[in-house]
Design a protein around this nucleic acid. Sequence first.
DNA 1: TTACTTGTACTAGCATCGTAGTACAATCCG
DNA 2: CGGATTGTACTACGATGCTAGTACAAGTAA
Lengths: 129, 129
Amino acid sequence: MSQIFSLSPSHPMPLYAQLTRAIRFAIATGRLRVGEQLPTVRQLAVELRVNANTVAKVYAELERSGILETRRGVGTFVSASHLDGNHREEHEKHLKELVDRFLEEASAMGFSLDDLLDQLQSRRKKEPN
Amino acid sequence: MSQIFSLSPSHPMPLYAQLTRAIRFAIATGRLRVGEQLPTVRQLAVELRVNANTVAKVYAELERSGILETRRGVGTFVSASHLDGNHREEHEKHLKELVDRFLEEASAMGFSLDDLLDQLQSRRKKEPN
DNA sequence: TTACTTGTACTAGCATCGTAGTACAATCCG
DNA sequence: CGGATTGTACTACGATGCTAGTACAAGTAA
């Protein structure tokens, strides 16, 4: 179990945000499965050369989001609750919010909804450009 | 010419960013037309209850982006250059970058490209929801 | 030239935020 | 019980970033 996640201290995005995103991504893509245990806060802190508190904050935040569960003295695990209907609704809401922000930013840059759709469509097959 | 732009000091987005976006938006939507003069840095600073430097920074940044032109002792104006081919290419590049960030964030949240497309498609006619 | 208007440079203060350090609390397991 | 392991609370430091203040520079117009 080496090199689970990787952080870039030089990157402008704060460490805790990088880690949050990495964990979410790992779960979303199935690299971390429901019920699986995550590394200990101290363990992960050492591996990532980061303070234990930073990891703890991330775990706590993800628990509030309902995608992790933590039991003291035992560890932190991938929760199953993010699969049920209630959380899927929340998830949908987050998608809407993300798209809202996206549209706002785009329109401030002078792009129309169709510009965005075109650009997104062009990503369907080919990665490059 | 009152209430050109409006800023929310309480909003988490910094004032300069709010103003930048507002100006870009005004130009993109035609509320500010090519060649039109913007308020003086001091004028606008007073109206928005903001320091003149804040406005100046925004004007300077927008000039670097090529969408404003400023002449000392005269004022600041909407540039015409953002219409020509060269700048349209830059603009296209920015769209790609925006979409890149968007896709990254979305995938970290577990959404697929198709999820995004669906959500965007549903915005085509109706605003609500 | 001189007074006036415009944008600009430089600085400092202030707030916010991210991270680390240290000490604490809950749980497990022998 | 008692040691070990887990997550947690609290604090403080450092860095960054935003904004304001003040003084300056460049251009205009009489």
